[in-house]
């Protein structure tokens, strides 16, 4: 297995965290993994993205230029990364705020209204975890249990109260791409 994923969106949409939780989940299920953020001034309010590579074997390039999956949380990210996805790849689109439809026909596109789903669950902040659920639902790259273990580790201690809502969000995301 070799999954090369780009998570992209506005700063503040939890894009980097999404990648980190997925990476932790991949580590949890015994894969090799690397997480590489974009960094610098572009992080301050502009668009942010991170590359995650998950593999059965040691990882070569941690920098992903041609992802086989892209999770786009805002329109500029979709415009930037849709063309980069390898044929047969997957794109997950935050349809709550992106009105565009994919022009590529050689990839599978899922439209997930993750903001709306998160609001229905009662916490708008978990939109990123909804999207992460959609990603694992669409690709099966990392198991639900492994991602939940990562979420438990990430929200251990003071933030433990948030684990339940994040579990609901993850499941709702998976259901959205069934």
């Amino acid at each position: 297995m070799l999954q090369e994923i780009i998570f992209a969106g506005f700063g503040g949409q939890g894009v980097l965290l999404m990648g980190q939780i997925l990476s932790l989940g991949a580590l949890e299920q015994g894969n090799e993994v690397s997480w590489l953020p974009s960094y610098g001034p572009e992080m301050r309010g502009g668009t942010a993205n991170c590359s995650v590579v998950i593999s059965d074997t040691p990882i070569g390039s941690p920098l992903v230029l041609k992802p086989n999956a892209a999770v786009v949380m805002n329109q500029p990210s979709m415009e930037k990364f849709e063309d980069a996805i390898t044929p047969g790849g997957v794109m997950l689109v935050n349809s709550s705020i992106i009105p565009l439809k994919a022009h590529r026909e050689d990839i599978t596109t899922h439209y997930v209204p993750c903001n709306a789903i998160a609001e229905e669950l009662g916490n708008a902040k978990v939109a990123n975890v909804v999207m992460l659920g959609a990603y694992i639902g669409a690709t099966g790259a990392v198991s639900f249990d492994a991602v939940m273990a990562a979420i438990r580790a990430k929200f251990a201690g003071k933030k433990a109260a948030l684990i339940e809502i994040n579990e609901k969000a993850l499941r709702a995301g998976m259901d959205a791409v069934k």
Binding site: S23, S34, L36, P37, Y39, L63
Partner: peptide, 10 residues
């Protein structure tokens, strides 16, 4: 290089 500093790996 900047990759090594910013990257997360196990």
């Amino acid at each position: 290089d900047g990759f090594i500093g910013q990257m997360m790996e196990p």
